[in-house]
């Protein structure tokens, strides 16, 4: 325990990994809460998969593997994917599920095609893009962590600024429209922030499992409270906890990819919350039902 603490503070790799995953956990916890409350949980899945061709194209066009460049490409592709989903839902008779699946798999397929195309060119600079598939926290350097922290900080600042509007949008979009808020523009803003959260997670968790990073903390936090502010705080905490513990596990046991370890840690938190959270927990539910059943089976009082 003490060794771990010392390593967290002084070991270069471990410190970066822990900081990077914590930033990811906090940002994705907060923004994922809004996505889950707005019943757009799987939007994050499509956004993260759609980011892959963006990363590849950014590399092909600039020849640079600088994180900000790649993440900019990812962000643009994610944004384009969202716009396409909206168009498909609005202009055809296909439902949201179908639109999400189409954009997700077509963009990802394109990304895979580009990725294999890049890796087969004999280019000294080519390797390493595939680490975005499952994430590789160990590759984070201090400069990367600073980049991620800046993106995350800006996203969180926007959430603080628009807290009231987002809250209204999440719980009663029609009411917010009737009050004169431009719900369409707010919704685009919120989705863009989710794109930012996805972008932060690409290097640590990878595109495939990023969706759980958005949904998991929110679902876990929702079990503990009925207040949005508390839920956001808890989701950020759970996200950071899962991120740091999963990343540490993967760095210490070096053969395990980071993304899956973080997601397994997160799943554990979700299961514990679902069963044991006060008030909402399934265990208390079960105990309550048992008590009620026993009370019902007691002999009826005598009638006068």
């Amino acid at each position: 325990m003490f060794d771990l603490l010392r390593d967290l503070l002084f070991d270069y790799t471990l410190r970066n990994v822990a900081l990077g995953s914590a930033v990811l956990g906090i940002v994705s916890g907060v923004l994922g809460s809004f996505a889950v409350l707005r019943r757009q949980a799987l939007l994050g899945d499509t956004l993260s998969h759609a980011a892959l061709p963006g990363i590849c194209l950014a590399f092909l066009l600039t020849g640079s593997k600088d994180l900000p460049v790649l993440l900019l490409g990812a962000g643009i592709a994610g944004w384009l994917g969202t716009a396409l989903i909206l168009r498909i839902v609005r202009d055809t008779r296909l439902d949201q599920d179908a639109a999400l699946g189409i954009v997700l798999s077509a963009f990802f397929g394109f990304g895979i095609m580009l990725l294999t195309f890049i890796s087969k060119r004999n280019d000294a600079n080519q390797a390493g893009l595939d680490k975005f598939l499952f994430g590789q926290a160990a590759a984070l350097v201090t400069r990367n962590v600073v980049t991620l922290a800046i993106i995350g900080g800006v996203a969180l600042a926007v959430v603080v600024l628009f807290y009231k509007e987002f809250k209204l949008l999440a719980f009663d979009a029609d009411f917010s429209a009737s009050l004169g808020f431009n719900t369409e523009r707010l919704s685009v803003l919120l989705t863009s922030l989710i794109v930012a959260a996805v972008v932060i997670g690409l290097q640590t968790v990878g595109v495939v499992l990023m969706v759980a990073m958005l949904i998991g903390p929110a679902v876990a936090a929702r079990q503990w409270t009925d207040r949005l502010g508390v839920m956001l705080g808890l989701a950020a905490f759970f996200g950071a906890l899962a991120g740091v513990s999963g990343a540490i596990l993967s760095v210490e046991a070096s053969r395990l990819p980071t993304g899956p370890m973080i997601i397994l840690a997160l799943t554990l938190i979700v299961i514990i919350s679902l069963y044991l959270a006060p008030a909402h927990g399934l265990v208390w539910d079960w105990a309550r039902n048992r008590r009620h059943r026993r009370n019902l089976q007691a002999p009826p009082p005598l009638m006068p």
Binding site: A41, L42, A212, I215, G216, V219, T267
Partner: peptide, 13 residues
Amino acid sequence: RVAGQAAIGIVFP
């Protein structure tokens, strides 16, 4: 406790 799509997004990852 877990609505619609969110349940899918918890289980498969």
